[in-house]
Design a protein around this nucleic acid. Structure first.
Lengths: 73, 73
DNA sequence: GTGTGACTTCTAGTCCGTA
DNA sequence: ATACGGACTAGAAGTCACA
């Protein structure tokens, strides 16, 4: 089976999330509190290390006040 | 824990995925083979039952020939 | 304030079957 | 062709101590 697993979406998401957070001048800790997720988890997501699920993507998008779609561009 | 978990993105994705698949006149089995995921899993994703990860979202979007963003509208 | 490794818990994801 | 169930394995979720 040719599982040509791509992770470009993951990297785009992580990059855009960090940018959106910095635009708000929030620390990772701020975003963690706002989203209800853990500080170190948010950090690892921003570094593109985590294969995040759609529910948590939506959760972070809501927290940072950006449409989920825009975090994937 | 006030995890006001939203799952609207998940439901949009599942609906759009099914529509995109049917537009191609593919069975779930076809999509499963094309994406490298399991047949029963694709079915449960289309039913909105699964909290799918971003890598597999991208994988399915590629398989069905649609931009990931468009599956979230 | 952020990065990292290690860790446990929980669910994503597979595979078998039946309807 | 699809839904659904049970049992299983891989891997995401979530936390922590320390740098």
């Amino acid at each position: 089976m040719t599982t040509k697993q791509k992770i470009s979406a993951r990297l785009r998401f992580s990059k855009n999330l960090r940018e959106a957070r910095l635009r708000r001048e929030w620390s990772q800790e701020d975003l963690a509190e706002e989203s209800g997720l853990h500080r170190t988890y948010v950090g690892s997501v921003e570094r593109g290390e985590r294969n995040i699920s759609i529910d948590n993507m939506e959760c972070l998008a809501n927290a940072v006040g950006v449409e989920l779609i825009d975090l994937l561009k």
